[in-house]
Amino acid sequence: MKTRVTELLGIRYPIIQGGMMWVGRAELASAVSNAGGLGILTALTQPTPDALIKEIARCRTMTDRPFGVNLTILPSAKPPPYEAYLDAALDNGVRILETAGNNPKEFIAKAKSKGVKIVHKCTTVRHALSAQRNGVDAISIDGFECAGHPGEDDVGGLVLFAVAAKKISIPLIASGGIGDGRTMAAAFALGAEGVNMGTRFCVTREAPIHEDIKRALVDASEHETNLIFRTLHNTGRVLKTPVSDEVIAIERRPGGCEFKDIQHLVSGQKGCMALETGDLDAGLIWAGQVVGLIDDVPSCHELIERMVAECRERLAAASMLTT
């Protein structure tokens, strides 16, 4: 399956595993890459830049195919050493970088000087156009259906992908709501040349997540996600659980809500504990509406091959409508 995305990244299929906190580890990234997609290690999942160097080396023992590193740069009172993580990736042979959040021009220049291809993830066309002007190689754009932070514009993929495809000249990757060959075919019909999946890759055999969490994602319908942090203007989509229900209840209290009121429920370490122990009451489980399309736990190879076959079938069936 040849597109500008496969040509740019040197992969067989235009399917990218999103960089997910606590999930983007060598086990999953290598499995996706071995299956013909692009696996992604999440830099900030590792506690230090040195730990990222070791994870890159570990991933190389598990695949000889291309994989990338995600670096999400967010404003923070105590920011992690972003540039040190960037250097850890660049100095250890990583040649594909998925960026998200802020995208400093100096980081782009440093990466490009090493021959790195940059895929920038964003949630609006205006940010995509800005990243394109700053020199990134491809755009991954998140529709409102996605897990994580879909932005504040609330535009679903059906419209967002089509608008972005009209305005962006570099390769476009559709993200959010993609979980099978039908949705992949729809993204291509709208003008994308690749797809990015997070939640769907969480529900694979190689994902480093407790089986009880995978089962909860299989059992969930498309109605069973919550939008949290709405009142804080930092919307996040997560699985509907007692924890996320409590967050919403606090946000809706008369008089409003400050982050300190919910911090004890939403910390990243508690989310990591939930993924590792399978305890849905331990912390947030980030998940998109695509859970409604997920009904099994395949290997990454099985998932990707099935998606590609179904995508081809759907595109072929659609092309018959023009004859």
Rank of each mutant, 00 (worst) to 15 (best):
E152T: 06
F67I: 09
N34V: 09
A77R: 14
D87G: 12
G39Y: 11
R25S: 11
K110V: 01
K166W: 12
G101E: 13
R126Y: 03
G101I: 11
L86W: 08
H120D: 10
V32Y: 06
K112A: 00
T124E: 08
A57V: 03
D91H: 05
L71I: 14
D87L: 15
A165Q: 07
V94N: 07
A29C: 06
I139R: 12
C146G: 08
L74V: 15
G39R: 11
V163P: 04
A57T: 06
A138G: 00
I141L: 04
H127F: 04
A100W: 06
H127A: 04
P81W: 00
L90I: 06
L74F: 12
T123F: 05
Y85R: 01
I139S: 09
P81G: 12
F67Y: 03
S33A: 12
R58L: 15
H127E: 02
G143M: 04
A162V: 05
I118H: 13
V69H: 01
G39W: 12
N34Q: 12
P66K: 13
F161V: 15
G93I: 02
V163N: 07
Q46S: 13
L97P: 06
L71M: 08
P80G: 13
E27M: 02
D153L: 05
F144G: 07
T63N: 10
E83L: 07
P104W: 01
L44V: 03
D91R: 00
K121C: 02
K114S: 01
V155H: 04
A162G: 03
A111I: 09
E152I: 09
P79R: 13
C59Q: 09
S130N: 04
P81K: 02
S76D: 14
A165R: 06
A164P: 07
A84D: 15
G39N: 04
A165N: 10
H127R: 13
S113H: 03
E27G: 05
T72G: 14
L41H: 14
S76R: 14
